[in-house]
């Protein structure tokens, strides 16, 4: 299972403690996926970026960030994970969309905490019809990703919604990356290195052996990833 790290301020001291721990147990973080929990931590975006770089210099692979305001995260950072809890800031894109399309009535913006009733919008999706090769990342926070080919070992697919792979899934798939517990993962051949839905994840070692190579469907039931073969 992946490891959660909850850093404390000041970060310099905390990194020092981490170095201590790493020195005492060599290889502790080696190849282990780590989730960074920064809930309640008062830091700025550049500080967070610098902190993640510091961690990667220590060979700590951060696969996701929990408890972060979306404004803290950038495309060059690991995706947000939210451990099944709804994050408040997730309303932000809708507020932005409303601001981008000002209505002629010129009404005052709704007070914070009471978003205007949102119009029905189609859920966007992305379709990819060629293999996702090792080293490539497909990131689509807006909705579903459908891949009509394989996802190679060392490739990564991150979707705000569900992920559908009509081929072998050998890399990483992270569905519901912006906080969406109803996101699912489907694939015709499961050989994944890592699977995550809404911040909960399974590494290759946690995947039941009888599911390997099968067509599989994964979804979230509370805090557990459920799996079922499709045929």
């Amino acid at each position: 299972m992946a490891l959660a790290l909850s850093p404390e301020l000041p970060l310099g001291d905390w990194l020092h403690q981490l170095d201590d721990l790493a020195a005492r147990s060599a290889g502790f973080f080696l190849r282990r996926p780590v989730v960074l929990d920064i809930e309640g931590l008062q830091i700025s975006r550049p500080e967070l970026k610098e902190f993640i770089d510091e961690l990667s210099r220590r060979n700590v692979r951060v696969i996701g960030i929990e408890g972060a305001r979306p404004s803290l995260l950038g495309a060059d950072m690991p995706p947000a994970m939210s451990g099944g809890r709804a994050t408040q800031d997730i309303e932000e894109p809708i507020a932005e969309a409303a601001a981008a399309a000002p209505d002629s009535g010129g009404s005052e913006p709704a007070p914070a905490g009471q978003p205007e009733p949102q119009p029905v919008r189609p859920v966007p999706s992305m379709i990819i019809d060629q293999p996702v090769r090792s080293g490539q990342s497909v990131i689509f926070p807006e909705g579903d990703i459908t891949i009509i080919a394989s996802v190679a070992s060392g490739a990564e697919v991150v979707a705000g919604g569900s992920i559908h792979v009509y081929g072998a899934l050998r890399g990483r798939a992270m569905a519901g990356s912006m906080g969406n517990a109803s996101a699912r993962i489907f694939c015709s051949k499961l050989e994944a290195e890592l699977l995550a839905i809404d911040g909960l994840y399974k590494t290759a070692e946690d995947i039941e052996p009888h599911l390997r190579g099968r067509a599989v469907h994964l979804w979230l039931d509370g805090d557990a990833i459920k799996t079922e073969t499709l045929n």
């Binding site: 090769r133 080293g135 190679a152 070992s153 060392g154």
Partner: peptide, 9 residues
């Protein structure tokens, strides 16, 4: 094979 996959990308 994995390196070749990367190169094809």
């Amino acid at each position: 094979v994995r390196d070749s996959d990367r190169i094809i990308g």
